[in-house]
Write a protein that binds this DNA or RNA. Structure first.
Length: 411
DNA sequence: CGTCCACAGGAATGACGGGCGG
DNA sequence: CCGCCCGTCATTCCTGTGGACG
């Protein structure tokens, strides 16, 4: 019953407190606004490129580059959904299929998803990729649609699976007579050009579109637009807005990041019962986001990845090498009684941890003394203690390590 | 200026759990 | 139920390499 009282208070507080948010949804990154500031050129270009489908022609394949949070996805979806409704007016059979390759995961599932979109159901798994591709092709041919396939984050697909999917897709028109397919590929990675087979690449990028990062003043405008929709008047201070755009501009002009900051800052302010969002709330939000990110990442690591992190932690120096870490890791596995992975495998785990921002790994040559990776922690030691302290197996190792360190320093 | 360390990191292959169609 | 295929993780084997040392 005491608990009920507590909850009551929380809810009452929430309902009665000064309402900052008018519409939280507007700040989510899958929200597509009616106005996309500073992307007029891209909208015009993309629009012009896809326009031929209104006259039943196939449009050029397009390749879109740009860092995360530069509006690639938003612009594409914006243009294509407008295109679809325009097509209805002209009675053109136009449809677009949006697939996020990173979320979808595998080649198989990308084709499966495309298949669903042309009305051919496909089991989650069990069929060969060729079979799924064939079903997709037949379904498409039967529907007589002019299809625009949007492959978001194609780089994710290429990196693990190669370019087979893209190769098949670029050639699909040769076997279709009643339908047409155009491809819009979206990539965060500019180096993708080099990873792709040049034939595939050239047919894929009949047109190219580049999204530059936003600068601070552009981000400022974007946030201003969104904040008008998401917050009540006067609940956002000018200083907070500025710091949001400055922080995000420093981080490759990532608008998604800026919107996250703003949303979390709003939540922080709301929880504190404040009526306006201040600069301090934004700073708090920044810490909050980063902390959450790392804690989640650490928690979700596999046992062996955790052990790798712990090995680096326990070495406690700023330039441990692969070999040294492997030794400690070996020792830890022994204490746990777990089977151990090869050094080769450990190397890729380290690379993964590096790209997650948990470790920092850099290949260096020490001349006569070989070539290795210098590895150090990228996050605070206390954070690791906090997170792994609750993981009982790792926690035990951690405690052992700490006490043996203390014993050493005493003696 | 060649050698040679201590690995990097690619390619091929295997083990395994999950899920299909028949 | 079987045979097949999928995707993931891991191992094995391998060739490649920057630069201090001699």
């Amino acid at each position: 019953m005491g608990n009920t009282k507590i909850l009551d208070d929380v809810f009452e507080n929430f309902v009665n407190s000064a309402q900052l948010f008018k519409d939280r949804e507007v700040l989510r990154h899958d929200y597509i606004p009616e106005k996309l500031p500073h992307r007029e050129d891209q909208i015009r270009l993309l629009g012009a490129t896809v326009a031929p489908v209104l006259k039943d022609a196939r449009c050029s394949n397009i390749f879109i580059y740009g860092n995360t949070g530069t509006g690639k996805t938003a612009v594409t979806k914006y243009v294509l959904s407008h295109l679809e409704s325009k097509a209805k007016e002209y009675n053109a059979l136009v449809k677009f299929s949006y697939v996020n390759c990173r979320m979808t995961g595998s080649e198989y599932r990308v084709f499966a998803s495309l298949s669903q979109n042309v009305g051919v159901p496909v089991p989650f798994t069990g069929l060969s990729v060729d079979e799924v591709f064939d079903r997709f092709r037949r379904g498409l041919e039967a529907s007589r649609i002019n299809l625009i396939v949007v492959l978001d984050e194609v780089d994710a697909l290429i990196k693990n699976r190669g370019d087979r999917l893209l190769y098949e897709l670029t050639r699909i028109n040769e076997t279709l007579s009643k339908s047409k397919v155009s491809i819009i590929g979206i990539s965060n990675d500019l180096r993708l050009k080099e990873l792709l087979d040049s034939r595939v690449f050239s047919s894929l990028s009949e047109e190219e579109l580049v999204f530059r990062p936003y600068d601070a003043s552009e981000l400022h405008n974007i946030l201003l637009e969104r904040s008008k929709l998401s917050f009540h008047e006067g609940s956002l201070s000018e200083a907070a807005l500025n710091i949001c755009s400055a922080l995000a501009a420093a981080e490759h002009g990532d608008a998604r990041r800026a919107l996250d900051l703003l949303r979390v800052a709003g939540e922080v302010a709301e929880r504190q019962g404040e009526k306006t969002i201040t600069e301090e709330h934004v700073r708090e939000a920044e810490r909050h986001i980063e902390h959450n990110r790392v804690v989640e990442a650490l928690k979700n690591l596999t046992l062996h990845s955790k052990l790798v992190v712990l090995s680096v932690y326990s070495l406690n120096k700023s330039n441990a090498t692969t070999g040294e870490i492997y030794d400690v890791y070996n020792e830890l596995c022994g204490e746990l009684g777990t089977g151990l992975l090869t050094q080769r495998r450990l190397g890729t785990l380290v690379n993964e941890l590096d790209s997650m921002g948990i470790l920092n790994a850099k290949v260096v040559s020490m001349g006569r003394y070989g070539r290795t990776k210098k590895i150090r922690l990228e996050i605070s030691r206390t954070l690791i203690k906090d997170v792994f302290g609750n993981d009982c197996r790792i926690g035990r190792l951690l405690i052992n390590k700490l006490s043996s360190k203390k014993a050493k320093s005493k003696s």
